[in-house]
C-alpha cells in the first residue's frame, strides 16, 4: 500500500481499490465500514439476480449485492480472494461482493478526473482516478446501490 510518496495528506484522498472481472474500481475509503470474507448467505425470494442474500454481521442482518451481476460483468470463479465490502451509507449498511480487494490508494485530489461526457449514462461513476499510469473507475456506491431495489416488483 505504499503509494503515498511525494504528497502531503491535506490535498490527497484515500480510496479503496478492488477488482471486478479483471477491471479496477475504487470507492471513497470513508464509506467502507469493513471488509469480510463472504459468509454463508440466506437467499431472499423474489429478489433480483444481483441480490445475493442476507448475512449476519454481528447481530445485524444486511443485504449483500453482487456487484459483478449488478454491473453486468462476467463474474470470475469463486476464489479465496473474494470479499464482501460493507458500506456504511448513513441510514443503512449494505454488503457488496467483489472479486478481490487490491489496495488503499492515496491519491492527490488533482489526479481524480471528471467522467467523460460519453459515460454520462452511468451516473454512479463519480470520476476516474489517474494514478501510477493506470486508470481506475471511481464509483459512488450510494448511487450505484440506490438505483437497484432488490425486490423485482419494485423494479417492475
Amino acid at each position: 500500500m505504499g503509494t503515498t510518496k511525494n504528497h502531503s495528506s491535506t490535498d490527497a484522498s484515500r480510496f479503496m481499490e478492488f477488482s471486478l472481472g479483471g477491471e479496477s474500481f475504487a470507492v471513497d475509503l470513508l464509506l467502507v465500514k469493513e471488509v469480510i470474507t463472504p459468509p454463508e448467505m440466506t437467499p431472499i425470494p423474489k429478489s433480483a439476480a444481483h441480490v445475493s442474500g442476507l448475512i449476519n454481521l454481528r447481530g445485524l442482518v444486511l443485504t449483500v449485492i453482487d456487484a459483478r451481476k449488478l454491473l453486468g460483468i462476467q463474474p470470475e470463479k469463486a476464489t479465496t480472494e473474494n470479499a464482501v465490502i460493507i458500506f456504511d451509507l448513513g441510514e443503512r449498511l449494505v454488503g457488496v461482493i467483489v472479486d478481490s480487494i487490491q489496495k488503499v490508494l492515496h491519491v492527490p485530489v488533482e489526479n481524480v478526473k471528471p467522467v467523460p461526457d460519453a459515460d454520462a449514462a452511468t451516473p454512479y461513476m463519480k470520476g476516474i482516478i489517474q494514478f501510477d499510469n493506470k486508470l481506475t473507475m471511481l464509483i459512488d456506491p450510494e448511487i450505484l446501490l440506490a438505483g437497484t431495489p432488490s425486490a423485482k416488483h419494485r423494479a417492475a
Binding site: T42, P45, S47, L54, G59, V61, I65, P149, A151, H153
Partner: peptide, 27 residues
C-alpha cells in the same frame, strides 16, 4: 425480530428478519 433490510422494504409478506441459533439470518 430484527427489521427487514432497507433493500427488502416494500416486499409483501416480510415481517422482518431474525438470526437463527446457527447464526444464519432468516426471513
Amino acid at each position: 425480530v430484527k427489521p427487514a433490510t432497507k433493500e427488502m422494504a416494500g416486499q409483501t409478506g416480510v415481517m422482518g428478519t431474525t438470526i437463527l441459533g446457527n447464526g444464519k439470518p432468516a426471513i
